[in-house]
């Protein structure tokens, strides 16, 4: 077991009233799982991913990843934990516009103690994995949407994370590209045995995982 949540609750305080975005969410994920998280818009999927990574403080409940207590950790500890254990893939890619593909991939290694060459080599290997080694010196704006998302995936992988959290990674891509990305994630999941939690709207995409979690109004159904 790599991830375990227990009665996770997140209430957003808003002037229009309180939003119960997550309600007693409890589940476990085993190493090597590819979990897809589905649910209507506003059902709390993004909130769940962010809470798991400690990017949002939960209102109550527990989250443990690889034995690390996400809820009680300090900012410094959490940052370090994310650096070493978590890779993010987002709908909007979130590449740094002034960094080339390979520099973007190297970004999570910025703080590591690896040598310049080692960092470069690792990043290059990841670009190879996503089939973009021949675009390594391109800026994001010089890449297609699908290529940008592949760079983002390479970046999520470069620190050899325990867990990849993906929030609608194919949301901005056309069906053909989506399928490429999903196959890539599947390949990573199977070849590297990296655990993936992927939020998606698409029923088709949801089939790529080996487990499904469906959220309705912040509760697992």
């Amino acid at each position: 077991m790599i991830l375990k949540t227990n009665n996770l609750c997140k209430k957003y305080q808003h002037e229009d009233g309180q939003v119960n975005a997550l309600n007693n969410v409890s589940f476990e994920v085993n190493k090597g799982d590819f979990v897809t998280i589905t649910g209507a818009s506003g059902s709390g999927k993004t909130t769940l991913l962010l809470t798991l990574a400690g990017l949002i403080k939960s209102t109550s409940g527990q989250v443990q990843i690889n034995g690390f207590d996400v809820i009680s950790a300090s900012d410094r500890k959490l940052s370090e934990f994310r650096k070493d254990h978590i890779g993010f893939v987002m709908q909007s890619f979130a590449l740094i516009p002034y960094l080339t593909a390979i520099e973007n991939v190297m970004l999570p290694l910025t703080l590591s103690k690896l040598s310049k060459d080692q960092k470069y080599k690792k990043a290059f290997n990841m670009l190879q994995l996503v089939d973009l080694e021949n675009r390594k010196n391109h800026l994001p704006k010089e890449l297609s949407a699908g290529q940008q998302q592949r760079v983002a995936i390479a970046r999520a992988l470069v620190n050899s994370p325990t867990l990849i959290l993906a929030d609608e990674p194919t949301g901005n891509l056309d069906p053909g590209l989506s399928s490429d990305i999903l196959h890539l994630l599947k390949k990573i999941n199977q070849q590297e045995n990296i655990t993936i939690l992927m939020v998606t709207h698409s029923p088709l995409a949801a089939e790529f995982g080996n487990r499904k979690i469906n959220l309705i109004n912040g509760e697992i159904n």
């Binding site: 990017l55 410094r76 516009p97 970004l107």
Partner: peptide, 16 residues
């Protein structure tokens, strides 16, 4: 903003 959020996400702590 987005970029800095990104840095935070990949593990840059506040002091960095």
């Amino acid at each position: 903003h987005k970029e800095i959020g990104m840095f935070r996400m990949i593990g840059f702590n506040k002091s960095i």
